[in-house]
Design a protein around this nucleic acid. Sequence first.
DNA 1: GTCAAAACATGAGAAGTCCTCACATTTGCA
DNA 2: TGCAAATGTGAGGACTTCTCATGTTTTGAC
Lengths: 213, 213
Amino acid sequence: MDDTATHMSPQEQIASPRRAPSQQRSRERVERMLAAASALIAEQGSDAMRMGEVAERAGVSIGSLYQFFPDKRAIIRALAERYTAESQACISAALAGVSDAEGLGQAFSELVDIYYRLFLAEPVMRDIWSGTQADKALRQLELADSRANAEFLTEVLKRLHPSADPVALDTSAFLVWQMGEAAMRLAISVERQEGDRLVAAYKRMALRELLDR
Amino acid sequence: MDDTATHMSPQEQIASPRRAPSQQRSRERVERMLAAASALIAEQGSDAMRMGEVAERAGVSIGSLYQFFPDKRAIIRALAERYTAESQACISAALAGVSDAEGLGQAFSELVDIYYRLFLAEPVMRDIWSGTQADKALRQLELADSRANAEFLTEVLKRLHPSADPVALDTSAFLVWQMGEAAMRLAISVERQEGDRLVAAYKRMALRELLDR
DNA sequence: GTCAAAACATGAGAAGTCCTCACATTTGCA
DNA sequence: TGCAAATGTGAGGACTTCTCATGTTTTGAC
């Protein structure tokens, strides 16, 4: 009872932490809250998601919601963390065994396709990463996630180009990764056909950067 | 430049239009409102900007604010429109006379530098384009702006590569442009030194896409 | 200059949001 | 069994954004 912060602040506000659910009952309720939030985001977007609605749909009171999530953004962040954990495992697996240029080309191409399909199919993921800019902590999370993913790529690059400057490789990998996320966001915001073209163009561009050095 | 998106979510609200200022007095007041909004965004970000504060700083009542701007986002959009108009003129001028590969390399490189410096120096611009995702109309504006800018690039490319598929050129130009905006956003959100490296890497990557075909 | 109509200005308060807090209930465990 | 810790509750506080009835200024036709 210290960080209670009665007034909203001029700028950044760090949400006070909440207790993690320790009993079976509350763990299930937290799951329901996250599921409700996810459904509402899918339907209306995270901006239009109302905390009262989340509570109602989860079958809990508004107070219970705030027992486990310090504020609205924390719920969204919790969902985001699940996605990042999931996708990092996927990416790591896809790139782990790569040892030559052809293998990288193959793996990278598949990864892009998977991500593109994911973006097209998952309105929640889409919405969350779109809203990234509004929430500093979420932006940090995305950046950290992106760095972690780029790291896998860097490892492969170092194996392929042993004599190249490691910093340059790292920069390339990070940039390529971020460009990919931007390309996805762009692709899903235009007509499907144009989106496909853009993703294909990105793929070519990225592979050239990664392979022809 | 009208629009009316083809599909609209049930939740989307089109803000009712407001009267444009027709008298000298009100035109000046609107200027003051925009200036106040700009200053507040620079200080705290558009999210933390309060309409009451804008009105107070502009020396007008909250009612007057709403007389000319249908809602909060409209004020931000009005500022965004100024930036796009300004930057489009600049880009058009930079690319207009380009007729060979070397000229494009030169002009593009300079343009990237200008944009990077602009992003670093202009907190308002930064904030506005960051918040792009929250406001559908603003996203449309940015997309339209990006297309218009890419169009200049496409024209140059068509001159340089007369035998290439025009659609492919257009896709490349649009992608390169969007990647550039993403690279800028990324660059300003990390340490200055890393940002510089990322922008340089983007420049190389983009030029290769534009020139080596 | 007169005067009606249009444009403009105002701020209390309507409507709606996030989040807190004092108090009630349930659970784990000595 | 009893009791502390964990959990559950929802009315209400503190903010927002935005409206609207009411008053003031400008315009322009006569």
